[in-house]
Amino acid sequence: MSGYTTPKSASLPTPEPKVPSSKAASRSLAFALFIVLANVVLNTLTMSLVGPGTSPVLAWSLVVIHPLVVLALFALALAFGVLGLRETASGALRGRGRAVAGIVVGGFLLLLSFGTAILDIARTFLA
């Protein structure tokens, strides 16, 4: 005999059931990241359309539209983030971190967008 004994119970542990994820929390982070895409598209559009001979109406309309788009995306990120926090509070759904990240990232990008918009206005129209 080699000293090896067969274990009496060789059953595998049962995996824990997977907890579903909050869709609202994921949407919150997605809308926050859409702010980056909106900034890239709107800044590219502004750079290509606004020049020395540009109508002031077109320039001001782009200056007004840009923050409104960013504000609308942040409002969606915030609304879905709060909904995601409520859905994940009991622990029945996962995704609390995504909800918080959507609110924080969206808020940071909103402040950054408004800051750059103010600097653009000052540089373009007040110089």
Rank of each mutant, 00 (worst) to 15 (best):
N39R: 11
S61D: 13
A99S: 09
S11F: 13
S21V: 14
S21Q: 10
A79F: 03
E87S: 11
G84R: 00
S61F: 10
R96N: 08
L12Y: 14
S61N: 12
G95W: 00
V50C: 00
T124V: 13
G106H: 00
L85W: 05
G91E: 03
L112Q: 02
T14Q: 13
A79G: 06
I35E: 00
D120Q: 06
K8V: 06
A92I: 08
F31R: 00
V105Q: 02
P13R: 01
T14G: 09
T5R: 15
L68G: 08
T88G: 03
I121G: 07
A99Y: 01
A117K: 04
K8Q: 08
F74K: 04
P67I: 12
A101F: 04
L112Y: 02
L58P: 07
A30R: 07
A92Q: 09
I118C: 04
A122L: 10
I103L: 10
L78P: 01
A10Q: 14
A77Y: 01
R96W: 01
P13E: 07
L76M: 07
G102P: 00
L111M: 11
K23Y: 05
D120S: 09
P67D: 07
V82P: 02
A127I: 10
F108W: 10
A75K: 04
G97N: 09
P56V: 14
S21H: 11
V105P: 00
G51C: 08
P17Y: 08
F108S: 12
T14W: 12
L76N: 05
R94D: 12
V40I: 12
L112T: 07
S9A: 15
T14D: 12
M1C: 15
P17F: 15
V70A: 05
T5Y: 15
T88R: 03
T44P: 06
V82N: 05
G106K: 01
A32T: 05
L85F: 06
L12C: 14
G95C: 02
T124P: 03
L49P: 10
G97Y: 08
T46I: 11
V104S: 04
A127E: 06
L110R: 01
S21A: 15
L33P: 02
E16D: 13
L58Q: 12
V63A: 15
L119N: 09
V57C: 10
G51I: 05
S55P: 03
L111A: 13
S90H: 07
A38R: 01
M47Y: 13
S55V: 03
R123A: 12
S113P: 00
S22P: 00
A75N: 06
L76H: 06
A99K: 01
S48G: 10
T46K: 11
S26L: 14
S90P: 03
T6F: 15
L71H: 07
L62H: 06
F108C: 14
L93C: 12
A92P: 06
A30V: 11
P13W: 02
L29I: 02
T44C: 11
V36I: 12
